[in-house]
Design a binder for these strands. Structure first.
Lengths: 112, 112
DNA sequence: ATAATATGTAACATTTGTGTTACACAAATA
DNA sequence: TATTTGTGTAACACAAATGTTACATATTAT
């Protein structure tokens, strides 16, 4: 597929790509060192890195003929923003539960 | 594909499925009410909901012939745990930057 | 009892995503 | 300069994901 059609969510849907991100959270790595650690072909990894780069999860520093890959926060932020929306939902759910319990408590008190 | 092969990351990779989750963060909805709001077919939505349910993003309450869908935190937690790993990375990066700046500061002080 | 409603699912076509091999090229090394 | 190293990408095959239509079934309403 055309790389332009990928978004952050699709980018992290692939286990290989998540493994690449995990590796880069330990150390910066040049393209081929990443590929060496996988059992799939170098071109496949090259493409995965391209996807992660295009979606803002990876920065690439050109150093002679090498391309050093490192994490870029932008991609992660997109996911986190989305998660934050639902975080708010769970917090409001807890509040509703809390209110419910308090109401019940006062009813129970009346019964006694 | 077999639903058993889906994981949380793949579950939220599809825009329709993310839209379903967004809807359910506003209100609980029966299966068909969800489908009504999309321009794709009801069976397609049925499958999306099945995926979200299997991966722990949705709970389903059977109510007569209706199946009421609502959010379930479990799926979101899986994503958040993964995000937390990288959150730690960014914090440690900030610390490194901080240490670097402090070291530089003391060098600059010596120069003066 | 019949009809309408709310669903599930199989079969199939199509689209999308991933992997491979083969080839190209620039930078570093001998 | 010739070779090796680090990389990109096109072409293709295959696998996986998504959508559709058609049909089945259980519950509710008439």
């Amino acid at each position: 597929m055309n790389i332009a059609n990928y978004d952050s969510f699709l980018a992290i849907a692939d286990p290989h790509r998540r493994e690449i991100l995990m590796m880069l959270s330990k150390e910066k790595l040049p393209m081929n060192s990443i590929a060496d650690r996988f059992d799939i072909s170098r071109p496949a990894i090259s493409r995965h890195v391209r996807v992660l780069h295009a979606t803002g999860f990876i920065d690439i520093e050109e150093k002679g003929r090498e391309r050093i890959c490192m994490l870029n926060q932008a991609g992660f932020n997109e996911i986190q923003d989305w998660m934050d929306h639902f975080e708010k939902y769970w917090i409001s759910q807890l509040q509703s539960l809390d209110e419910f319990l308090k109401k019940n408590e006062s009813i129970n008190n009346k019964k006694e």
